[in-house]
Amino acid sequence: MNKRYLDYLDQLEAEAIHIMREVAGQFQKPALLFSGGKDSITLVRLAEKAFRPGKFPFPLVHIDTGHNFPEAIQYRDELAERLGEKLIVRNVEDTIKKQNLSEPTGRYASRNGLQTYTLLESIEEFGFDCCIGGARRDEEKARAKERIFSVRDEFGQWDPKRQRPELWNTYNGRISLGENVRAFPISNWTELDVWNYIKREEIVLPNIYFTHERECLIRDGKLMATSDFIYRDPEDEIVTRKIRFRTVGDMTCTAAVESVAYDIDTVIAEIIESKISERGATRIDDKLSETAMEDRKKGGYF
């Protein structure tokens, strides 16, 4: 074999590092959006590879719905502490009070959609001109058409018809005042690529990614962790199952999957065997309509 052979994970890593450094080089005030999920944890490792031994040229920003898994929040705080990097947390709760928004109600009540308001508020508060996110094109068909540098207007809106052509590895981050960019370094990674990278890099994840017993309620055939935040019907069936989370988001819209996968290898084996997509298995928010993601992105979501 050619000795100058670059494995697919090395190629994906090189591309992601290049994108992060373009963000650092082209923008005045970038931020890395950190959720505590595996994709943003991967972004943090890539940022270490891109900028060490220097400091990150951006803070980590978490838009906290207040309904997150405590395990993810603890992980977030410990990680920022260990890295010695700045963590900014902004709460959806505060935005609700400040902007007098109505708290969603009913069976599918979730603050997930309200994150957009807090995100836009934070962008304004700190003057962020670029937010790095962990979205991947394999997740969803609207994301399949997303750019690596995605220009948003001052309302954060994504307009598929206004997208800039993106050629070679040349990213155009020029924006007018008020606009901002979302940058997606792991656009070309799949769920499995992320897990294989986590394995190779020996990254420690929050334990909710692995099997554990948890009390859940069954909603539309999906297992939702019980918490104070989730809407309950008197007739909801409550069960205790061995589960893990395939994605980690807001507790009110992230479903669990039944699993006995206890480490990275068994998780990888499970994903290879899985017949259901990552978002299909775990996201209530995408199921609400066929174009749910497209609509949310147009409204300023990731």
Binding site: A144, P160, Q163, T190, E294
Partner: peptide
């Protein structure tokens, strides 16, 4: 490979879409 609502409404494809698959040999 069907695309966005905006595209279906107009019966056109606006944009390049990226798709992924892998075999044991290649991504």
């Amino acid at each position: 490979t069907d695309g966005l609502k905006a595209e279906r409404e107009q019966g056109i494809t606006i944009d390049v879409a990226y798709k992924y698959f892998s075999t044991p040999k290649r991504k």
